[in-house]
Design a protein around this nucleic acid. Structure first.
Length: 503
RNA sequence: GGUCCUGUCGUCUAGUGGCCUAGGACACUUGGUUCUCAUCCAAGAGAUCACGGGUUCGAAUCCCGUCAGGACCGCCA
């Protein structure tokens, strides 16, 4: 394990998720800001897995974090799957470093073993709280003599390792919040480790940040109270300080910290619903950071050029999902139809409307008909301006993939038009379209023929509405000309006939 | 309860003593665009800058106090 903490010059940051649950929006935002700061400063971005809690840590949650980070495009330079000079990158694999430092603190009497039972401690906490004091360990086992310790050990009493917290006023500088001061006497003798092999968060973080030569710690504001503890530990171990930046929290509607209680905010959920990574990045970046002017569309590459911790907000930010929807729509519209088709295909497959035969070749499940990338593109293009999430394509474009449409006959009539009149309207549309040959079957040509006829009526909807409903079976959809083009000549006539039969 | 942090439209925010009768974006309302929906365009409503006091010719911006909200107080991270 390299120890270059005090000599390394460049910026080194880490994002350190704990694999105890799905990767959340809050994790993504912290990762993003770390990434932006690091890359804006030509630094090295480290991914460290904080799995010291063996009971709760699961490999699948680690994989979930990696997968979503990759999806977002936040590539780390060193991590569990990318060995570097400071590995391994899972805390569960770094026991030697912890043991060494724990023994060192114990030997220097900067830490001590505590034999108090959990129940005892709980009672103590209750008591302190009832008297209006800050609940903290009183230091009962501090005074244990060597003999007492030996006796307890031979008795087989279990112990934990506590830090002998020095009492003083500690001041540190936060890159976002400025000077923060704290009376460390209020901290109590917090626990460093369950035993020499089982370090706890505050301790393992300090050891690893040094051993991995981390220069800047950028994390959520919820870690602000941990910072004095970690600084005290650095001092006790004789380690150099690191710079801190505490990001404002991501909040739910009720302005409390975002949590499971507020519903599923996992990245996997947003990914599955069809949010684009560039939209999520843009959304998250603007939650707590802004460029100082009125631009609001930023891709990762733009952010890299402009990001600065100086422009990071101090107050928490409520997640405004409507804004995410808007941004996602913006990015969907920026895609080429080919890209969009490729992005939508998995959703259509999942809805069992489509099967991929080979790359770019599909089979329509209901009809068995084969279609290529071009046809699929023409369908998704119909809804490019209407999609907020890719997943919505299945409900919007299903008419294209169905053999027969099911809708109420009354839907075919424009406003109060009686069925007989609607019948006539469809008749007329059929005649007009019949004049267009297969080779000329495109929306411009169709519009050229249909629009003047529709114009002759008092209301364009008289002809256009029944046609559109006949083709889509929907009250709301893309326009009739483009839908007719996408469906093709044969299918268009078939649907017009089916509509007439309904009336 | 203690400690720490925070406080500009519903939400994200611009703003670092005069350009602020506070700007933008999302959401909302209304109107316009080849039927519908959406997009797009235009307009509108929406903030006594948490409150009170002070400094100043002048304060959202500086100082003091108050209040409110949040985070944390684990042998979780």
């Amino acid at each position: 394990m390299a120890e270059k903490g005090s000599t390394t010059k460049g910026v080194r940051t880490r994002f350190a998720p704990s694999p105890t649950g799905p990767f959340q929006m809050g994790n993504a935002r912290t990762a993003l800001f770390n990434y932006l700061f690091t890359k804006a400063n030509k630094g090295v971005f480290v991914l460290r897995i904080e799995d010291t809690d063996r009971e709760r840590s699961r490999p699948e949650w680690e994989e979930d974090a990696l997968e979503n980070l990759r999806w977002l495009g936040l590539q780390w330079d060193e991590g569990p799957d990318r060995e570097g000079p400071y590995g391994p990158y899972r805390q569960s694999e770094r026991a030697a470093g912890y043991r060494k430092r724990l023994e060192e603190l114990l030997a220097k009497d900067k830490a001590y073993r505590c034999y108090c039972a959990k129940e005892e401690l709980e009672a103590m906490r209750q008591d302190q709280q009832s008297r209006g004091e800050a609940p903290r360990y009183t230091g009962k086992c501090r005074q244990l003599t060597k003999e007492e310790v030996e006796r307890k050990e031979t008795e087989g009493r279990t112990s934990i390792i506590r830090f002998l917290t020095p009492s003083r006023t500690l001041v540190f500088d936060d890159l976002i919040r400025g000077k923060i001061s704290m009376d460390t006497g209020l901290l109590g003798d917090f626990v460093l480790a369950k035993d020499l092999e089982s370090p706890l968060y505050n301790f393992s973080v300090v050891v690893d940040d040094f051993d991995m030569a981390i220069t800047h710690v950028i994390r959520g504001e919820d870690h602000l109270p941990n910072t004095p503890k970690q600084i005290l530990l650095q001092e006790a171990l004789g380690l150099p300080p690191v710079a801190y930046a505490h990001l404002p929290l991501l909040l739910a509607e009720d302005r409390t910290k975002l949590s499971k209680r507020h519903g599923d905010n996992s990245l996997t959920r947003f990914r599955k619903e069809g949010y684009l990574p560039e939209a999520v990045i843009n959304f998250l970046a603007l939650l707590g950071w802004n460029p100082g002017d009125e631009r609001d569309i930023f891709r990762l590459s733009d952010l890299l050029k402009e990001f600065s911790l100086k422009r990071v907000q101090k107050a928490g930010a409520v997640l405004n999902l409507k804004r995410l929807d808007w941004l996602n729509g913006q990015y969907i519209r920026m895609k080429s139809t080919g890209e969009l088709a490729e992005l939508c295909a998995p959703y259509l497959e999942q809805a069992n409307l489509l099967e991929e035969i080979s790359k770019g070749r599909y089979r329509v499940v209901a009809t068995g008909k084969q279609i290529g990338e071009k046809e699929l593109s023409s369908v998704v293009a119909l809804y490019q301006e209407r999609l907020k999430r890719l997943g919505e394509i299945t409900n919007l474009a299903d008419f294209f993939f169905q053999e027969k449409l099911s809708y109420e006959a009354t839907l075919l009539s424009w406003k109060e038009t009686p069925p007989a009149k609607t019948q006539q309207a469809l008749e007329r549309v059929g005649e007009l379209l019949g004049g267009i040959e297969e080779k000329d079957w495109n929306k411009e040509e169709i519009a050229k023929i249909l629009l003047p006829a529709a114009e002759e009526e008092k209301d364009r909807g008289f002809l256009l509405w029944p046609l559109r409903v006949a083709l889509t079976g929907r009250e709301a959809s893309a326009g009739p000309f483009e839908v007719a083009e996408a469906l093709g000549r044969t299918k268009t006539f078939q649907r017009i006939e089916e509509a007439k039969a309904k009336l």
